[in-house]
Design a protein around this nucleic acid. Sequence first.
DNA 1: TATTGTTATACTCTATAACTATA
DNA 2: TATAGTTATAGAGTATAACAATA
Lengths: 157, 157
Amino acid sequence: MARVKQGTAAAGLAGLDSQVGYMLRQAQLAVFADFVASQRGAALRPGQFSILLVIGRDPGRSQSSVCEQLGVKRANLVAAIDELESLGLMRREASSSDRRSNQLQLTAAGERALHKVLVDQAAHEERITRLLGAGGRRALLKQLAKLCGLPKTRSPE
Amino acid sequence: MARVKQGTAAAGLAGLDSQVGYMLRQAQLAVFADFVASQRGAALRPGQFSILLVIGRDPGRSQSSVCEQLGVKRANLVAAIDELESLGLMRREASSSDRRSNQLQLTAAGERALHKVLVDQAAHEERITRLLGAGGRRALLKQLAKLCGLPKTRSPE
DNA sequence: TATTGTTATACTCTATAACTATA
DNA sequence: TATAGTTATAGAGTATAACAATA
């Protein structure tokens, strides 16, 4: 049998529950599910929400800049924006300074949808805060930010 | 990872980096990428690793019991095990007590592969510990376990 | 030459329904 | 009837390569 760590507990092999990656994944699934469940009526998926949010915060930005911020490939953002446009939540406008580029804007319906999601999302974050405590939540965000700083051994972009 | 640009227009909207779900997702991607990058030679994906690990810890268990522990649908485990079998890392054996059921076992190659991954994974966790501190890592695991306790479906109203 | 948006493509993960052979 | 494994299928998410228009 796989006696990999002879010394460790009766369980033998280190349990998944003691591995950061596994627990991060499980927690992320639980939190995303709670986010989706918190949406009343027309729900947005987390990815759609993040796109609307960064455009709402900084209207007129290009697809490439959204991609860079969110870590989405340019090719994959196309269909996502197509869908949000077909939902009437945002639009592509021609850039006056660079005719290759699109300026992304929320429609009025898009801004209403974004604010509605943000209201529901506040309740979602509030449930998390009740679970962790306010200080626990802040500490968690700090630890997660540190983890995001893990060096990426990936090909440069 | 996505660094949220602060202080631009529409500062009234909360930044993504203050949202637990978004930061969890980014941290999980960074940690998984580090896990994969830590594997020398023949790499296992996180999902494959988790399957080998639970079988290595408790050989002879059924596919359904692995599914229940890992939160994987029975239908989706079939192809995953097919792949691990074709890699020569594990095998299905007939159960003597229930002819519907398979007893899952690691092959010798599977045990060697698991051992190798666990060695690399220990270095991976060590990098995380250097980043967070031993106490910080323990606290993180505790918070993540709490988040996993979020009710799967929201209580009505 | 490099960049922006795009198309095409493929692989992974996940989810549901329905089938089979057993129990 | 219920359960274990399986098949088929579909929807998301993510990855790369290549192209046209533009810089």
